[in-house]
């Protein structure tokens, strides 16, 4: 039983080490891409915590990503706080919004939960447009150069430097990956999976399932918020596109592709989809066609995704 845990831990550390090593060999273009992918994969990991390990399908995660994005971006832009405080504010915004939405939306389940989260997220998106005086709406705004430089003791960080940016993105992803890994192996993770499998039965084992679902949503919101905040600070752009429905659908797609309920699935799904879209957009502006086709094919013929299939066929120890 515990050799599986050790093997899984080694695999995770190896993946992180590999990602660290990649920065020294990748050409500039892919180096930049991978930094972005790592932030988006962190977002997907947060989404997967809810869908994969708790069984709740949200169609409104864009509002949580955007809470982090705007929380950090507006704090830096309007209040002039430094990057680290901006990040903290972003994480807290994601967390707070997730808890507030959860207290209402988690009274529903299944299809109703999907629609309620979709509606809340749409309201959040419209809110970013309504307050265009601060957010500059669709157009968005770029963070000032100075706000992305940061001094801790004698260490000086410049988040616009590609190397620094890559390693911060990797740090974020590593934290999210290991946090989900530890969580799903913990007693709490066991309860979450039990809720996914059979909520009624879980109640009859003495668990107040609402609290656990709220906890999962809160953790998912904090991670999504962290990803959003990191995106704003590392790539210096904040715009309402990131609050639109599309950014609720994308993490669903990444997680479905990589494997629902696998810790490494979100990374694999994000990498593949990012590059597929990248290649396709070289040929057509209708690259979202790919997103549609992928969604339909995944639910139709490949519901377990890549790592889910690997786990079922060859490696049952995969977390």
């Amino acid at each position: 039983m515990h050799t599986g845990t050790r093997r899984a831990l080694l695999l995770h550390l190896a993946v992180l080490a590999g990602l660290f090593a990649l920065q020294f060999v990748l050409p500039d273009y892919h180096h930049r891409n991978l930094a972005r992918i790592l932030v988006l994969a962190s977002y997907a990991a947060g989404y997967n915590l809810l869908l994969g390990y708790t069984g709740l399908l949200s169609l409104g995660h864009a509002m949580l990503f955007a809470a982090g994005l705007y929380g950090a971006g507006l704090a830096v832009q309007l209040l002039g706080v430094n990057a680290a405080s901006g990040f903290a504010i972003g994480v807290l915004s994601g967390l707070a919004l997730a808890v507030a939405v959860g207290l209402v939306a988690l009274r529903t389940s299944g299809v109703a939960f999907m629609i309620v989260t979709l509606m809340f997220s749409q309201a959040a998106f419209l809110t970013t447009l309504y307050f265009a005086a601060f957010t500059r709406g669709d157009e968005g705004f770029v963070l000032p150069e100075a706000s992305r430089q940061y001094q801790i003791g004698s260490f000086f960080f410049d988040l616009s430097d590609p190397g620094t940016r890559y390693n911060f993105a990797l740090l974020l992803f590593a934290a999210c990956l290991m946090a989900t890994f530890v969580l799903v192996r913990s007693p709490i993770g066991r309860v979450l999976v039990a809720i996914r499998e059979n909520e009624q039965r879980t109640t009859m084992l003495g668990y107040h399932t609402f609290r656990y679902k709220l906890l999962a949503l809160a953790a998912s919101g904090a991670i999504s918020g962290a990803a959003g905040a990191a995106y704003a600070l590392l790539f210096s752009y904040v715009g309402s596109t990131f609050a639109s429905i599309q950014y609720s659908i994308l993490p669903l797609l990444w997680v479905l592709l990589g494997g629902v309920g696998t810790t490494l699935g979100p990374l694999i799904g994000t990498v593949l989809m990012f590059y597929l879209v990248d290649v396709i957009s070289g040929y057509t502006s209708a690259y979202l066609l790919l997103v549609g086709v992928a969604l339909v094919l995944l639910v139709l013929v490949f519901p377990k995704g890549i790592l889910g299939t690997v786990r079922a066929k060859a490696a049952p120890w995969l977390p």
């Binding site: 039983m1 007693p187 066991r190 309860v191 999976v193 039990a194 499998e197 059979n198 039965r201 879980t202 084992l205």
Partner: peptide, 12 residues
């Protein structure tokens, strides 16, 4: 819980 091991069932 049909998808979980016997260990996880009882551990829950």
């Amino acid at each position: 819980f049909g998808g979980l091991t016997c260990f996880d069932n009882v551990a829950l």
